[in-house]
């Protein structure tokens, strides 16, 4: 059976990627909110925000990228929920396939769709004046962190998609995740925040990830932030994966 894992996952991923390419609006909607936020912050609020950096769009882009991912994974929960509503899910479960392939297909599709949305957002940021001297290695690390963050949040989305009772419930879990970057170093330096808020902001996962990506873009030496960021991503990923697989087994047992 293990030998079929890759073949089954590939076949099922091909299927759900077709769902994405045939409703491109999901990728565009994923990119629209972050792009609108970017426009709002750069051209409306940005003038009043003092970050100590030359280009506000470059300063905020890491946070915007995380918002993009947080809104993108809601579609994974949505697609998984819709699969379970239709008979397709039961058909797959009654076939001689590797059952975890059904979830992996959704996860790989999520990574692909989110990478496309991220590309659109970065493209718009470049048009708005985002510049970086980051080399190939730095970019690879940035992409690596973003993929890891996407994987971590996607497994959370899988839990939501599997356990939701309604389609709204399946996607609503992503709202707090979209909001998290606002209480972080993504838009304003945390030093400006009052004590308790600052304490939260500095110790939640988004800040370390944002700081790491920002340092990579501005070619600053990367400090402990990178390891904290990796710790958060891997920790959420493992916890999410474990809980999602547990929810899946309860669902199909």
């Amino acid at each position: 059976m293990a030998t079929h894992f890759f073949a089954d996952t590939a076949a099922l991923t091909g299927r759900s990627l077709r769902h994405v390419t045939r409703s491109l609006d999901t990728i565009i909607t994923t990119a629209v909110t972050p792009v609108a936020l970017m426009l709002l912050f750069v051209y409306v609020f940005g003038g009043a925000i003092d970050t100590g950096s030359d280009s506000y769009v470059s300063y905020m882009l890491p946070g915007i990228l995380l918002i993009t991912i947080a809104s993108g994974i809601a579609y994974t929960a949505h697609r998984l929920f819709m699969d379970m509503q239709s008979g397709v899910f039961e058909r797959f479960q009654s076939m001689p396939i590797v059952r975890s392939g059904v979830l992996w297909a959704h996860v790989l599709t999520s990574v692909t769709a989110n990478l496309i949305s991220l590309l659109i957002v970065v493209g718009v940021a470049i048009l708005m004046g985002f510049r970086t001297g980051a080399g190939v290695m730095a970019w690879l690390v940035v992409v690596g962190i973003l993929v890891l963050f996407t994987l971590a949040l996607t497994w959370l989305a899988v839990i939501a998609g599997l356990s939701a009772k309604t389609v709204d419930g399946a996607t609503a879990f992503s709202y707090p995740l979209i909001f998290l970057p606002f209480i972080s170093s993504a838009f304003v330096p945390t030093e400006t925040m009052p004590g308790p808020v600052r304490a939260f902001a500095e110790h939640q996962p988004v800040t370390s990830i944002v700081n790491t990506i920002r340092d990579l873009f501005t070619q600053q030496p990367i400090g402990d932030d990178m390891w904290i960021a990796l710790g958060w991503c891997v920790g959420i990923l493992l916890a999410g994966y474990g809980l999602a697989m547990g929810a899946y087994r309860r669902k199909i047992a």
């Binding site: 077709r18 239709s86 008979g87 009654s94 396939i97």
Partner: peptide, 25 residues
């Protein structure tokens, strides 16, 4: 093979793609 109570077909794929998918699986 199970043909469930509600047609277990993928609405977004074409009829042929549905059949190819099951054959691959």
């Amino acid at each position: 093979s199970l043909t469930g109570q509600f047609a277990a077909v993928d609405e977004i794929l074409s009829g042929r793609e549905n059949l190819v998918l099951v054959a691959r699986l």
